[in-house]
Structures are given as structure tokens and as C-alpha cells.
Design a binder for these strands. Structure first.
Lengths: 214, 214
DNA sequence: TCATGTGAAGACATTCACAGCA
DNA sequence: TGCTGTGAATGTCTTCACATGA
């Protein structure tokens, strides 16, 4: 019970997002089947997940929405504000910077890095940009533990090494490469090309299944 | 055996990408443990996955790289060229358009949609842009089966409905919302905020586990 | 010897189904 | 009644371990 699985963490974060998003003026409580419908899971799944956060609802009123949000946050949010570093100020990097601006009070991308001198030593979407040479130095000095990687695949591993050298413990990887990291560094891969190819496969004829092995 | 799981498809696409990427001048064959190391999986996992594509290697020389790529492609690629539609020409949408340009010969984003008249009726990163009002009509006329959704969460469901009305069978969803679709439409969620929150959690102290339920 | 292909075991995740409570 | 919390059952995915073949 002590260790919560990756999938459960993902769903908990989703539940919280849905609860924050929805306007619950009228109701202050929510049942597992309601939350399940919102998220696309079975009520049993929702109850299992919520068990793990340790907050317990009541059969009469379900889960108190405010308290549930609070409990999930206590579990998944860091204790204090967390700075995040981003490497690769191309179109994706820039999009993430723009998208992330002011979304969260606890998380902030406070340093961006690129090789191109045109892009460094200035502020983009409110984020200071530096040359990659200084990556390890700067994130180490600031105690940054989380990195977002949006560099081309050729540079991905070397920038990863710089992240790791700078003390990063988790990397969100948008490059279409598999990164080599020490076993205690967490990597989440979000290759967009692969995502498109996967969706194309599953939008194929007849629930996406053909079988014409050659 | 006939139906291949989502996870397996993902890994197969990954294998293919890695094989295409790597320069195999010297070697024409590859062993499951080599491919496994590249992809970050066990050799057994790799063999199980490759079993499903129906291409069988030899204990002496492993898997022939060219033939393996071909076999995976035969399984996951569509029979002919596939057009893809994209909705929401914000920073993410634009980034995807830019990133996707000329990556694949089989897949092409050929229509983009937005509400903003400033963005429509022109060409962005080689892709023709139209007003969202015409979404269903245009994708229906062109037989587009796959959509990429990058609109703000408020518009996500209505654009999804337009996609579905236009005959789309698979949606890649970058909006931080859960879409409601008929059961035969496939949705792949890629919420970036959630991805960051998840990675932050797993970059927390001590393999990311705290437990301070409130 | 060393790798493949695969039945069987094991680990993990989801769902069932029901006791207990308001 | 209609919910929650949870043991037990089921289902899915991964790994083991070995027969087989070059």
C-alpha cells in the first residue's frame, strides 16, 4: 500500500484536474460513479484510487470535493514551490513555455536553455533563457530537480547528461529518442510522432485491426 | 493472438523508430537483447512483441533489420497515404505542424482549423487552414479518419463532436479534458500539464514517494 | 554456445460482489 | 435504498526458463 503505482498517480492527477475544472456550485459532494463517468473509468477504479490517498468518503454524501482536491494535492504536490528547467527553445519548447505560463502556482519553468545565441540571454514567455553550456551549473545552483527536454534527437542524450549532472531527478522527454539515465532518474517519454502513428493505427478500418504480416 | 494490445503497438512503433534512426552500416541483424537495451525493455519483452508481428528471426543472426522494419510497417502503417486534420492553431498546434512537416511520407496533416479569422484561409507550415465551421464538411469530403486536437479545453468537446460528425475514428487529444466519444472512436490523451505534474511527483525526494495524507 | 519462440509462472491492474453504514 | 471500502476473483502484462536449432 505504501507505494502508489504510476498509473494511479496519473489518474489521481486527472481527477483533481477534472474537479478543479468543473463548476460545482450546486454540489459539494461527488460519488465515485460520477467522477468515474467524468474521467472515463469504472466506479470501482475510482474508489480503489481514492483509497490510496487516504481520504475516505461517506456512503451518504460521497466524497467532499474540496477535501478530496486537498487530499490529492497533499499527495502529489511538492511541499514547496518547484522550479523546472526546459531545454530546447524550438517550436515545441516555446509552446510549452507559453502554455505553462501561470497555470500552476507551485510549478514554474524558470530557466530555458538553447544552443542558438539568438535565443539565449533574453526572456521568452516570461522565462529567462541561457546557453546550454551553463545548464548543469545553473540548475545545480538553483536546486532544480525536474527537466523538460525538447531538443532535436541528436542532442537529446548530451543534454540529458547535463540535466543529470545538474542533479535533475525527473525528465519529461519530447524528443523521439530513448534516454539513458541512472536508475534513480525518472523519465516520461512523450514522442509526438509516435503518438500520431499510434492514433493512425487505431483509427484504421474495423477498430484499427488489420493483420497482413509480410 | 489476433488482437494486438495498445502497449505492444506502442513498443513496435518505438522499435521501428529506433531501428530507422540508428545507423546499422556494419550490422544487418540485431538480437533481442540489443534492441531491448536500445528501447529500455527486457529481451523477453522484445521477443514477445516481435512474435506478434509474425516475422521470425534466427538464433544465429537474430532479426534482419530491414525485414523487421518492413514487417512492423506492414502491421502498423496504413495501406495508403493518410491525411490528418488538426484543430486549434495556437502555439501547440503550430508546433505540431512545424514538427510534422515532411517527417513521414505516409502521414500528412493536410487541413488545419481555427476560429480566429486571422489564422484561417491561409497556409501555415505548408498546411491549409480553414474556419472550424467547415471542419465536418471538409474532413468528410476528404475521408480524413484521424484528428489532432489542440484547442483550449472549453472548445474541446464541441470540436470533438465536429470531428466525429466528420467521420474521424481516432483523436490525439492535447486538451486537458476528457472527451466524450462513441465507443468505436479511439482517443489518445496527451495532456501536457498532467505530464509535468506527474514528472514533478516522480522527481520528488526518495524515488518520488512521500505520504502525508491530510 | 548463444539466441529464438513459447508454455507456464509470476506480478500487476481492474472489476466483482458484498458487508456495513447512514 | 444506495453508497463506500475492500477481500476475492478475474484479467492483462511481463518475466522466467527451457526445448529447439544453427
Amino acid at each position: 500500500m505504501s507505494l502508489i503505482s504510476e498509473k494511479t498517480i496519473e489518474r489521481l492527477i486527472l481527477y483533481r484536474g477534472l474537479l478543479l475544472q468543473a463548476n460545482h456550485e450546486s454540489e459539494s459532494g461527488i460519488y465515485s460513479h460520477q467522477l468515474g463517468r467524468m474521467a472515463g473509468f469504472t466506479p470501482a477504479q475510482v474508489r480503489r484510487d481514492l483509497m490510496q490517498v487516504g481520504y475516505t468518503g461517506s456512503p451518504a454524501r460521497g466524497y467532499d470535493i474540496a477535501k478530496l482536491i486537498q487530499s490529492i494535492s497533499a499527495l502529489v504536490d511538492p511541499a514547496e514551490k518547484r522550479e523546472i528547467a526546459l531545454a530546447g527553445i524550438g517550436s515545441i519548447g516555446r509552446a510549452i513555455l507559453a502554455y505553462f505560463q501561470g497555470r500552476s502556482s507551485l510549478l514554474e519553468i524558470t530557466a530555458a536553455f538553447d544552443t542558438d545565441p539568438e535565443k539565449t540571454d533574453r526572456v521568452i514567455h516570461g522565462c529567462r533563457c541561457y546557453p546550454v553550456d551553463r545548464l548543469s551549473e545553473i540548475i545545480l545552483a538553483r536546486g532544480i530537480r525536474t527537466g523538460i527536454l525538447c531538443v532535436p534527437s541528436g542532442a537529446a542524450q548530451s543534454v540529458t547528461d547535463a540535466f543529470v549532472a545538474g542533479g535533475v531527478r525527473g525528465i519529461l522527454n519530447y524528443a523521439p529518442t530513448r534516454l539513458i539515465v541512472p536508475p534513480d532518474v525518472y523519465v516520461e517519454n512523450r514522442d509526438m510522432i509516435m503518438a500520431v502513428e499510434k492514433v493512425v493505427y487505431f483509427s484504421g478500418p474495423r477498430t484499427g485491426q488489420r493483420k497482413e504480416t509480410g
